[in-house]
Design a binder for these strands. Structure first.
Lengths: 128, 128
DNA sequence: TCAGTAATACTACCATGGTAGTTTTAAGGT
DNA sequence: ACCTTAAAACTACCATGGTAGTATTACTGA
């Protein structure tokens, strides 16, 4: 919000996603959730959550001896911000160009292309 | 290459873009190119270029008393890397989802949608 | 030849993300 | 009442991006 969301680090974003999925998570829960992908120390997660709280990204309430955290920024908002930032970075603002980059730069399956086409048709319908 | 390209900072990416556009640019030229958008000190650009050279992102050759820089990483490669990283961040790897995010998160003009549709058709044709 | 100038080199500083160890606190069971 | 344990708090450290001032060097024109 006040702090630009696109600047989120990888871990921060991952933590937010975890909290979007399960609001009111304890540090232990977030830590457990991230465990398979990142083998972080418990305190790493705790510290990051505290830092994120300072930045206004999350908030906590007490529950017994634990803190339960929740995200203060909406997934939508962050997605938009992060996406917008990429579009700016990649192609100084041209969405078409950005998507073109994405399409040409990796293998895209037939199936994905179909889905994408549907997405666009839908967007068209909505916009009309 | 060896260092993951997606980690490029905004300024670094901007400098690379400038060099892709005009290879063998002096510091002064890069500085001038960026001037309108970012009013940076000359030495800021020079320092960043030196740092980027250390990281293997650019290289220079001497021309009189100036250094002429060129990018060592290809635009394609960086675009792919940056794009891929975003897709991972935004939707743990689903391109469709990522594009969907981009589409729903901002105003997309009719015209852009048309272009996008064309892009996809083209990709389909290519992949077949 | 010498002063000015334009270039690089060097140094420094700050913020932030990421990571984690150590210390304190408090709850809970025996 | 005390020991264990789990939680938060505090502190610390490093890398990197970004930014720029100061020092040095070397060319160039008067």
């Amino acid at each position: 919000m006040n702090s630009p969301a696109y600047r989120l680090g990888d871990l921060q974003l991952r933590i937010l996603q975890s909290l979007w999925d399960r609001p009111d998570s304890s540090v232990a829960e977030v830590h457990a959730e991230l465990k398979p992908e990142r083998d972080l120390a418990y305190t790493t997660v705790a510290t990051m959550l505290r830092k994120m709280e300072t930045r206004g990204l999350v908030a906590h309430r007490e529950e017994g001896r634990s803190f339960l955290y929740r995200a203060l920024v909406a997934a939508e908002e962050v997605s938009r911000s992060v996406g917008q930032h990429l579009v700016d970075r990649l192609s100084s603002g041209s969405l078409t160009e950005a998507v073109s980059h994405l399409l040409t730069s990796r293998e895209v399956s037939r199936d994905e292309l179909d889905q994408l086409e549907k997405l666009i048709k839908e967007a068209k319908r909505r916009s009309k």
